[in-house]
Design a protein around this nucleic acid. Structure first.
Lengths: 194, 194
DNA sequence: CCTTGTCCCGACCGATCGTTCGGTTACTCT
DNA sequence: AGAGTAACCGAACGATCGGTCGGGACAAGG
């Protein structure tokens, strides 16, 4: 039978603890001692589950990036009018951001000091570029205003969406995610179409 | 006569170098060795000008906060219809953000590990609250839509504005600042009024 | 009973951290 | 010329960093 009980750490359950501490103290501001204390095990025990601090970061940002790139593979992001696909992607970005909140938070704070961080930054740029093309196509099809530069608008829209990680905290209310997604779509897309 | 030549460091000119390195590597990711290398002097010489690493951070975030709070004291932020004052404050926030870019960048990335960082976070919250009241008043006067929660809208607007530090880099073009400010005002305020 | 492997630990490693200290250079003022 | 001081330096401090090492506790399988 496959194991079901989880009274001991797996790489993933340890990651869950680590990412939370990373987000509270910052990656560089977090020592292995901090992680050990938060996980309730000794510092050296962490190395039984993962190869080191950087693997934890790599696993975390990878999970975030998989969630984001997954959006672009969904049918509604690939078919139809560019403006509609853009709205769908914006809405799904908010949902993924919230669903994978701690992992995306960590991704968005990466600075580029190590190889792992630079790889994360590169993949982020790639994702941004894919969404920017969507906005460019929507402009070409005449569905968004032409007096705001596409590159500038893309950055501002990303800025608004990504800022969600700075204040959103999960609560009991069902539909809170949808409410946030609705507000973003309303603010951004009416502003763009205006 | 007052000294004019600047072939040696002052606390402020050293701060200028330090803040740039802080923004590249992150505050925690920056060692005094990094700062010394960037400044072209030895590590111990830094302590001739400032008391330590944390004073550099304190000076930097203080400069950013003074710029932001200064906006609220300007006449156009204090008189007139709330919606107009809001538009003025939003526009001036973009301008201050760009004028004091490295200092505001550092302020926006503070995590709260030390006393200085927690003080910075508290003042930031105070500023956010002041602007949120402006938006609330504009809603009460019927100048912005009522179907988006004020608290939520405030956060999204701040997110868009603050995200500027993540991508704006000064160039030779005059009027680039105004262009950015115009785009933000258009996107945000037509979205809000819509 | 004995082996095997998982999970964990305290002790320790060399390196680097922010900071301090004693001292040297070079310019200013009298 | 001599005193004072601003600006700087190399060497070293105790503390902490990420990571290693040898081994103990314990359950599973033969």
């Amino acid at each position: 039978m496959t194991t079901l009980k989880r009274d001991t750490y797996t790489p993933d359950s340890l990651l869950q603890v680590a990412v939370q501490v990373f987000n509270e103290r910052g990656y560089d501001g977090t020592s292995m001692e901090h992680l050990a204390k938060a996980a309730g095990i000794s510092k050296s025990s962490i190395y039984h589950h993962v190869s080191g601090k950087e693997e934890l970061l790599r696993r975390a940002v990878n999970r975030a990036l998989e969630g984001l790139f997954g959006i672009l593979d969904e049918p509604q992001a690939r078919e139809g009018r560019a403006a509609d696909r853009l709205e769908y992607v914006v809405r799904r970005m908010v949902e993924v951001l919230i669903a994978e909140l701690p992992y995306v938070t960590l991704l968005l704070r990466v600075r580029g000091n190590t190889g792992t961080e630079r790889w994360a930054l590169e993949r982020r740029r790639e994702f941004d570029h894919r969404v920017a093309e969507l906005l460019k196509n929507a402009a070409a099809e005449g569905d968004v205003r032409g007096d705001v530069e596409v590159r500038l608008a893309t950055r501002l829209v990303f800025g608004m969406i990504n800022s969600i990680v700075e204040w959103y905290r999960p609560d009991g209310r069902t539909g809170a995610r949808r409410e946030v997604a609705d507000a973003v779509v309303q603010l951004v897309l009416t502003g763009l179409r205006g």
